[in-house]
Simulated scan of single mutants.
Amino acid sequence: MNITQRMIIPLLSDEDAGRDYYKWSFVFVYSLESIKDLYLLVREYPNENLKQITIRFNEKLTTSDKWNERKVLEYLNALVKFDLVIKDESGYSLASNLFINSKLFEPLTESDFNDLRSVFFSYFRFRECSSFFTNIGNLEWFNFELFSKKNFLNDSKPLYYFSDKHKATNCFLSDVNGNVLSYVLENEAAMRFWDVFVKWGVSLRVLERFNINNIINHGMPNEVSICYFINEPVNFNLCEFIINNFTSRHIWIPELIYKVALNYRFSVEKIKELIIREITSNKDLTFERTSEIFLIKGKNNIKRINSATYLFPKLNNSFISHLIIRK
């Protein structure tokens, strides 16, 4: 891969966002559970101010890790910008009707996930990031109201991203083969918000993402990941896909998962399920195992360990490294 040109991604400015939506519109809230919990607290105690809500929150908190007003304010501001809560001189009150049967500090239910997905597909900054998968490089003419959830799920394409001389993600690619154009974020807040967008999307089972450094030789010194909107399998034949896309009878599982994801945008978990199903039902296939110790060698935290094993399906408590087509 050779990056021959860089193009700045045009985003809504703070001024335009303030006119059409909200100014200071990048929110940096990662916990979906806390969004739900603060919403429920405002519902239970309407028209209270920040100090009162913070006291209520910490009184009901079941852990010793108390929140300060700044952290509570960060989530309340997000709720306001999501149009779930309004703030006026009397305090905070609801502007929506979500999390109907939810309870404070309890795990998210499927109904909660559905409510949060509606936020994900409606908030304009999330929609702006979503449009990278359909219209990157042409966003200044992009009307966020024209694209629906269906467009993002059905008509989008995988996107590659990495960090170039920044801690946060700032570079995007639509391809990793040959001469390519790099799309670049210059807004520091937008770089940080991309991580929020991906975290929400993955948590809501809307987006999939994984690192491709060990799968293809992209020629970059950076850690490159692929991200895409998840599509559900329909009439997919794994054996037929292998025959059409591989010449070797000895197939490395991460490469297989990557190629299926690139072509069909299935979730990694769904692809692993398909592989296990094929292995256990098809006499023409066998497999090779690998050890967890080998996969996580040198990894010293949970995030890196999970990343190292993510693309390897498990069968009878063993990781599978290769699929083998019998002669």
Rank of each mutant, 00 (worst) to 15 (best):
D20A: 05
L11K: 03
L76N: 01
V29R: 03
F319G: 00
S93Y: 02
L12H: 09
L181S: 10
I296V: 15
N237C: 12
I276N: 13
F147M: 07
F197I: 04
T4N: 12
Y310A: 13
W67S: 08
N47F: 13
V268P: 01
E48P: 01
I212V: 15
L108E: 08
I251V: 12
E89Y: 09
E33N: 08
A95V: 03
F121M: 01
F287E: 10
H218K: 10
P107G: 12
F294L: 11
S248D: 15
E48A: 05
F193G: 00
K81V: 13
T62Q: 03
L84W: 03
F147A: 15
S102C: 09
D115L: 02
C129A: 07
V72M: 03
F26P: 05
E273P: 09
A78E: 02
L84T: 12
I8N: 04
L98A: 11
D65W: 15
P158A: 09
N154S: 11
F312L: 04
E186V: 05
L38V: 02
S203I: 07
E188N: 10
L285A: 04
I86A: 10
S93P: 00
L41S: 05
L146V: 10
D88Q: 06
T309F: 02
C129Y: 09
N214R: 09
F193M: 05
V85D: 03
R326C: 07
N151H: 14
N143S: 13
Y30G: 03
G219Q: 07
L12V: 09
